[in-house]
Design a protein around this nucleic acid. Sequence first.
DNA 1: TCATTATTGTCTCATTTTGTAACAATAATA
DNA 2: TATTATTGTTACAAAATGAGACAATAATGA
Lengths: 232, 232
Amino acid sequence: MPKITFLPHIAYDSVIFGFSDGELKILIMEYHNTGLFALPGGFIQSNENLNDAVLRGLYERTGLTDIYLEQFYTFGDVSRFKPEVMQTLLEASGVDVKKMYRWMLDRFITVAYYALINYKDVTPRPDALSDSCEWYSIKKLPKLILDHKLIVEKAIQTLRVNLDRKLVGGNLLPKKFTMNELQKVYEVILGTKLRRTTFQRKMLAADVLKRHEKHYSGKAHKAPYLYSFKKR
Amino acid sequence: MPKITFLPHIAYDSVIFGFSDGELKILIMEYHNTGLFALPGGFIQSNENLNDAVLRGLYERTGLTDIYLEQFYTFGDVSRFKPEVMQTLLEASGVDVKKMYRWMLDRFITVAYYALINYKDVTPRPDALSDSCEWYSIKKLPKLILDHKLIVEKAIQTLRVNLDRKLVGGNLLPKKFTMNELQKVYEVILGTKLRRTTFQRKMLAADVLKRHEKHYSGKAHKAPYLYSFKKR
DNA sequence: TCATTATTGTCTCATTTTGTAACAATAATA
DNA sequence: TATTATTGTTACAAAATGAGACAATAATGA
């Protein structure tokens, strides 16, 4: 069995977005007994494509394979080199830093991705080094290590720009959804209220939605149609 | 004097755009006696910010310090690992590959940037490994090594998207320019003809231009105003 | 000197897109 | 069966854009 080796100095971090309770949430890991929180990230095997490494990490944490994923920035400032932080994480997990994990204390450049997933499809799983992997509202994030707060902010900025251009909002919803649910996703991401009729007209005119049967919620009013995104 | 060391496995490549003769051009390096062409790139010193490394490389090739620069993608497929190409480059330059440059034959992930500069401000300078550093029209590029063609294509795509959103077109022109010159830049980048009156109205409405004196070209017609971009 | 030519800055009107409100059509409830 | 809340669609106003017209030059040359 060949030994798995990772590329030194290069990592990735992923901002995994979900939508629930009318809020935008992301997955955050907490490390054993440290009170330190971080984005889910990982390393690239020496014979592995960068994008595949990220998909592998996403699969390990969420169990999902067919994920909307987008690379948005690579963070390479020297100021993100803080070996004492990584040392704390490793020691708290009881691994032998001196031997196997020496390379993890080096300077790292990290390639950041964001993913959009359907909240309900996921049961977050922590990895070997971490205690928990849980959803946090982007309005109430814990303090994150290194520059991870900056990474989250840039992810949200990029998502906002791409929302209309790439019409990616639907990836945060189940396959079928109502127009109102889609509008709420847009409103939360953009941070503004949108006009119902204008939104509906725009989405229908974009010719990306397929209309399905009506959805009877049990509420005392007209039932809305369900929609799904057309395959491209 | 401390020895300069570079981060292994990480490089950058830059797509340096200029505008002349009504064409969009980029700087391409040719390597000694090899007929191999590549984007200007380089490595990151172990105590240097990623962005600073790119600016340093840009300065070495162009002599410019105040450059519009944007990171747009990080390329990390295993398929870009072709040690024989780098070996050819190094050997043709007469360096001792076995000793100093062993690390250059490893797998590299490259962070790609594009820069916009005023063509006339620059006298391209080759680096130690290369023969020449010259402007090529993006319509007539030589065959490039590795995935550099893909990198150029992605740079152009990103530039198109950012053109209106960030109003960066002016960085390809001298400080002062006429509306017609600016329009030509837009047309070349977008690959389409634009309507003169609509373009003028849009640019003026955007409130990013400052109007200066008229420019008398000697031609037999009304003289256009000169404009510059407002500082942000 | 004064038409001529090419191009510019601006205006006008038509067309398209977007903002805003109105309204009829339900699905459950009382 | 009237009431309530929400939906899909239409109607009209307002704004943005497309497309052309036109007067205002800067040089040229008769």
